[in-house]
Amino acid sequence: MILYDYILSPSCYRVRLMAALLGAEMTSRPVDFHPGREHLSPEMLALNPAGTIPVLTDGSLTLRDSTAMLSYLAAGHDPEWLGEDTPAMRATVAQWLAFSQRLTSSAGAARAHDMLHGPGDIDVLRRAATLALRELEAAISAQRRRGMIFLAGPRPTIADIACFPHVALAPDGGLPLDPYPSIRLWMREIRALDGFIEMPGIHRLHELKPEPGPMPDIRQTRTTRDPKQNA
């Protein structure tokens, strides 16, 4: 399984994160998206005529939509993540996957505008993103009233993983998350999941790391090193 990948892309991170949470093995093939525009190279366009990343290949299968990749990984490794317990849960997951596309085209586009000189009217993008973030905040607060925090039920699903990256990185596009307490707590839960991995701008919960011990004494190492080894 090969992921055509870009470290700063939230959509690529979706797939890396899902694979890490599932313990799925995947080879990352870096694409020089910026400044190299390698995603528009003839080789990449042959894989994905739309010129977007990520692209996931597994044998003869080529996937060009990151939420489809989440479904593929979950179905192959742990179908619990698909959230198919009931017809309502299954439809709710599908709805959040579609919603995640709204995040990509609003908060994601605002971030691409501010960080990578992407196109678009930044005010329009931020207004659309604010509406989406408010919708998410209201939905998570409703879940919390029911003793839950994840989007489609009592456990995380591909819906949470699809929405998480663009939300967590929204401040890069001039969209502070200060006004969204439920979103903040939802992100905390995702960042605390077993197997969680980071990307630039998104870190795991420091609280879960042990208190760092004293620094190793590097002077000791230097004085005992045999000078001949360096010769």
């Binding site: 307490p181 903040r184 707590l185």
Partner: peptide, 15 residues
């Protein structure tokens, strides 16, 4: 500045 239930034990929030 905040509702208590939005700041659980061992957490920090902006205000």
């Amino acid at each position: 500045v905040a509702l208590s239930h939005d700041i659980p034990v061992a957490s920090a929030a902006p205000g």
